[in-house]
Design a protein around this nucleic acid. Structure first.
Lengths: 151, 151
DNA sequence: TTTGATAAAGATATTAAGGTCTTTTATTCT
DNA sequence: AGAATAAAAGACCTTAATATCTTTATCAAA
């Protein structure tokens, strides 16, 4: 549904917003290692988010990425829009150029409800909602394969 | 969700299964032109489907692709499995290696229900169901951009 | 005011999806 | 048998997503 890149973006923002992280700056190396995401790739993604004002950054010694007043209230749809664009919610399931209720493919009606449910969820969920799930401890951000298969 | 390739596959099968098409063989050129799909690319896809027994083909003069006894009863999930594999229903929304209810990402619970609904729909829908929608006239397979924007 | 740290930016590489072109194989018709 | 036709197969091309590497700009501290 959403791209891998967009997932990385959300995880990056949530990492910075966690209770134990939100009062400090974090270098890209630290974030990337913790989340197991390629460093420079994540760097570019976070740069995009800084440009959008979703997070902030400072260069130089003791610089890094950090949350701002807007960060935790950012709805996920805003991140999705920034990275993937909203077009992903309009693509035809069968790969036709156009697909809508007035020009539907045979799968349009079947899945359109589901798709708008996903869209609404992205509209309603904020970064803070994901942070809660992690702080409470019933969800994970950064587990890698080794750890995951141990469970 | 499913790949463009997989959408092409479904559209190809449905085309062959339409009331007016199901009693004849159809060359790849005819199918591709009607559906506005690149000819040789669709050719390869249909070859896959023939190997799986979902449709049939004959070479040579008056040859072409055509439905067999199995075609119209094929559940869509079988096509999805053939082209994309079932892995697409297990990928983590945030791009982590592993994601499941015992090892969930912060979005897992939010979207898992939706995802299994999609899976079940693909299990329950058969080619014949899509054919009906088209034969009845409330759905389209092959509209191209020109026509679509006219509406 | 130089040095070191760090994000930003740019260039390049890799991979996978999607798409094209050419050759081969099977079949039919003359 | 030979020619024509059409799918099958294989090689290759293009584009977009993902990833890496290098250089530049900015800042802080010594």
């Amino acid at each position: 549904m959403i791209s891998k890149t967009c997932g990385y973006a959300i995880r990056g923002i949530v990492f910075l917003s966690l209770e134990q992280n939100k009062s400090t700056k974090h270098g890209i190396l630290e974030i990337a290692e913790d989340l197991q995401i390629p460093q420079h790739f994540l760097g570019k993604i976070l740069q995009d988010l800084v440009r959008r004002g979703i997070i902030s950054s400072i260069k130089g010694p003791h610089g890094g990425f950090f949350v701002n007043s807007k960060t935790i209230d950012t709805p996920l749809i805003e991140v999705v829009e920034a990275i993937d664009g909203l077009g992903i919610f309009k693509k035809c399931f069968l790969g036709r150029e156009e697909c809508s209720s007035i020009n539907p493919c045979p799968l349009h009606d079947e899945f359109d409800g589901c798709r708008s449910a996903i869209f609404k969820t992205f509209e309603n969920l904020k970064i803070s909602d994901l942070v809660k799930k992690i702080d409470i401890g019933d969800s994970y951000l950064s587990l890698n394969k080794e750890f995951a298969t141990e469970i």
